[in-house]
Amino acid sequence: MDADTYLLFEDYLDGRLSDEEKRMFEARLTSDAEFQNSFTTYKELNAFGKHTIGKATEREDFRQNIAKVANDYARTEPTTISKIRQLRPWQYAAAATVLVLIAISYFQFFAIPTYDDYREFSPISISVRGTESTSELLQRAQTAYNNENFEAAAVAFTRLRNAGEGSPEILLYNAIALTESDEEETAAELYNELMNGDSVYAEEAIWYAALNRLKQEKHSLAKELLKNVPSTSPYYQKAQKLQKKL
C-alpha cells in the first residue's frame, strides 16, 4: 500500500471521511482482498499500540493484581495439591498404626468384655506360722502361683487349707488359682466364704468373684457382684466400668 492509502486508513478510523468517501472505502474492503488485509492489520496495530503502549501502566497494575491473587490463593489453598499429595511409605505405616489403634480402642470400648481383659497377677508372698510340712506346701503353692502354674497352685493351696491353714489370704489365692484352672464353681464357693466374712480380703473377693463369673460368661451374676464393690475399694472404678460394659 502507498502512503496515501495508509493516511486513508487513518482518516477512516478517525471518522474524518465524508459519507460518500466512507461508502467507497467500505465497498473497496469487500472487493479488494489486499486492501482489506492491509486495513485489518493496520487497525489491529492501532488497537495494539493504544493498549500495550498507551495503557502500559494499567496493564502492569493488572499483572501485579493477578500475581497477588495467585499468591493469596496459594497461601490459603495450599492445596488442592497438597490435599492430593502422595503419602510416603512411613506415612502409610503411621496412618495404618493409627487406624489399628482406633480399631483397638473401638473394639475395647464396644466389645463384650472378657475375663482375659481383666486378669492380672502379681507375685505373692505369704508367711504362716505353721509346721514344716505346711511351710513346704505354702512355698510350693506360692512358687506355682507366681509361675502362673495355677493347677498346681490350686492343689497346694487346697491341701494347705485341708491341713488347717485356712487364712483369708490363702483362701483368696486358692480361689483365684481355681478360677484360672477352670474350676469356677469351686472358686465361687471360696469367694462366697470370703465375702461373707469380715476379713480385709472381703472386698477384693467381690471383685475376683465377679471376674470368676465373667470367665463363665455369666454376665448378670458378674454384674450383681460388681454392684457390691464399695466405693472405698481400690477396685471400685474398674468395677463401675466393667459393670457399664456388661
Binding site: A3, Y6, L7, E10, S38, T41, Y42, L45, G49
Partner: peptide
Amino acid sequence: ARKKKSLCIGQLTELIQASPKYEQLK
C-alpha cells in the same frame, strides 16, 4: 504528525505481512 503516524503503522503493517508467521495467522 498524522501523516507520520500513518506511515509508521504502514511500515509496521508491511513488516508483519512480510513475516512467514503472518500467513498462518491471517
